[in-house]
Amino acid sequence: MDELTRGLVQAIQLILSADPALLEIIFLSLRVTGLALLISTLVGVPAGAALGLSRLRARGLVTALLYTGMGLPPVVVGLFVYLMLSRSGPFGMLGWLFTPSAMVAAEIIISFPLVTGLTMTAVQGTDPALRVQVRSLGATRAQETWAVLSEARIGVVAAIVAAFGSIISEVGAVMLVGGNIDGKTRVLTTAIVLNTRTGDFVLAIALGIILLALAFIANAAMLRLQGQADR
């Protein structure tokens, strides 16, 4: 308990002191997570909408694949990305292994099925009569899709929030493909692992608190957005 209190105090001190090494870790965490989330959202939301609206016969198979993707063990994703990017792997020439790019790649693979699958479910949950009504009012295909997405917005925001939560807190994959290199690929989660291992519990707790706070702020902001949209 003593360590927890000291961790809390030190976390506040650390944040107030604006320690450059710490800020770098925080910014890298946000940058990697943000970029991965942005790409997953830009591709996953339209893909989920298209799947939710389509009447393809193969949709059952696609759904099963997506749901499997939503439960992928991150460490397995890390292993896969590692092999792809290692020098003898098919994408070895990119030279991404042990760089933030590799971490972004891994986090996209983890978050894309979440965004796509949950968006698809949200779109399927909208009233089919509304689509016919919107078309009858003169909507183009794109306008119809937009109308359905904005009706499903609560579910779509939840999809993005869930994806954010899963990758900001991800450790196995980013550890494998990033390597937790000080000043280069160290993020909050990998730093926590390292500091715990080396017995620096106070710093680990401080980092944990910062991580929690970031997740909380991001989620609160998203929920606010959701609430405004629902008014």
């Binding site: 009569a129 509304l130 016919v132 009504q133 919107v134 009706e151």
Partner: peptide, 8 residues
């Protein structure tokens, strides 16, 4: 239509 499908 019979059932007014309104937007939220």
């Amino acid at each position: 239509f019979q059932r007014p499908a309104l937007l939220h």
